[in-house]
Amino acid sequence: MSEQPDPFMLNQWFAISGLTDVGPTAKNTLLMGEKLSYRRAGDGFEVTTADGRTLPVLAQYACLWTSLGQPESGLFEIPQYHETDRRSIVAGSIGVNVSAQRGVENFLDMGHFPFVHTGILGELPHTEVKEYNVRLTEDGSEIIATECMFYQPMASTVSTEGMDVEYIYRVPHPTCSVLYKSSPLDEKRLDVIALFVQPIGPEKLRAHMVLSILDDVNADDFISHFQLHIFGQDKPILENQMPKRLPLDTRAETPIRADKSSIMYRRWLAAKGVTYGTIPAAA
């Protein structure tokens, strides 16, 4: 199994910290096994490797991004992030002992809501994942899942009652996903929850959760509390995944209809030649 990044992963941008956690004193982190230090330097940011190489940086979507290779372009677009009446919050950066791609796959899965997020994102007996659509964009750069409907007792921090919630998932990056879900405050608009996963090692991730939501009621620490509570519920599921890397062979695990997004995600990773954090199909 690959311990070195494949070309597709090597040349991606990865979030390595929330911007609010970056100060003038250097902090350390790992990106695909490479030790990095990062800090605020003047008006910008600086990311260096242990052997003194300066890496490219981006400050976007409330996070600091870098790359071990040479990214072909900037980051994917999240237009809603720039809407001025939204609250944008980095809910936290959490380490999990599992591969980055397993983390994304769990984020795409609705089937676990009633069992793992009981009373919040689902509840018994509402366990059915109804039929939804998954497609690849024309240029093949992104996966989009639409018309995902799910009954949620407490869909967000401003929920006062259970509701049928619509989800749209985007996967515009091998370890990032952007989720849009109905806002309890405004039926015409969607809350945005972005998961930017930093692969620390092939079986270790750090998840940066950035919310861009309609909530004019609650304090930041309550919104973070809500999101970390949900993520904390996912941790034992993620850390008990066997194998810890995502198998790309379609016969390796038995999918059900609800796993359409995951099947597309695995195929897409395989087509891009991703070996880091995955178990590629035998040739």
């Binding site: 009633p114 793992v116 009981t118 009373g119 018994l124 904390g232 519920q233 941790k235 034992p236």
Partner: peptide, 13 residues
Amino acid sequence: VMPGIFPAILGSQ
């Protein structure tokens, strides 16, 4: 329960 700890019967809390 707390996040990270499940009840004896999944989905019951």
